[in-house]
Amino acid sequence: MSAEAAVFYLFAAVTVASGAVVVLARSLIYSAFALLFTFFGVAGLYVLLGADFLAATQLLIYVGGILVLLLFGVMLTHKLYDLDLRSEVTQFLPGIIVATGLILILASPVRWPLDLRGLMFRTQWAVGAGRPPAATTAEIGQLFMGRYLLPFEAASILLLVALMGAAMIVRRRKDA
């Protein structure tokens, strides 16, 4: 096994295993911390894929922002002395059936005796010259100011609205 393969399987295992814990853990706190490892695992895969800027963004925004927000959400919606922050589960069996079905449809590896490969293995994706791992930050910055100027500016409106909206919703009414 090459070093690349070893690192890939390590990150893939971390991602999938912690993803499973997020979904299956009984305690919200366990879920939240497992989510931390999922985000790390995905960031590791980004590095393997040569997406250095994106890996850093993943760590900064997902781990530093979104996860912290979610943790705040967990903490603020429970009493602090309430030790087991349980999250109840409903319709577990149908959920498992749907998820297993999805995995099989998307990524079933079976080729023999019948060709039952999932979509991911069956489809001929647009595979081309590819992009050898190299620093991407400069190029991404140029694209933001060039081809992606419109979405870049539109995203700033989105952030303004989200900021304004979240502040407005949480602020208590004066008469309340």
């Binding site: 409106i157 909206g165 919703i169 009414r173």
Partner: peptide, 26 residues
């Protein structure tokens, strides 16, 4: 006219709508 723009615009409409629906704070 581009998938990235399409998804961004769709989410912008959605997120703004969520806030508008919750406008009656109390």
């Amino acid at each position: 006219n581009d998938l990235a723009m399409l998804y961004l615009a769709l989410e912008m409409v959605s997120i703004t709508s969520y806030v508008m629906v919750a406008y009656m704070k109390g």
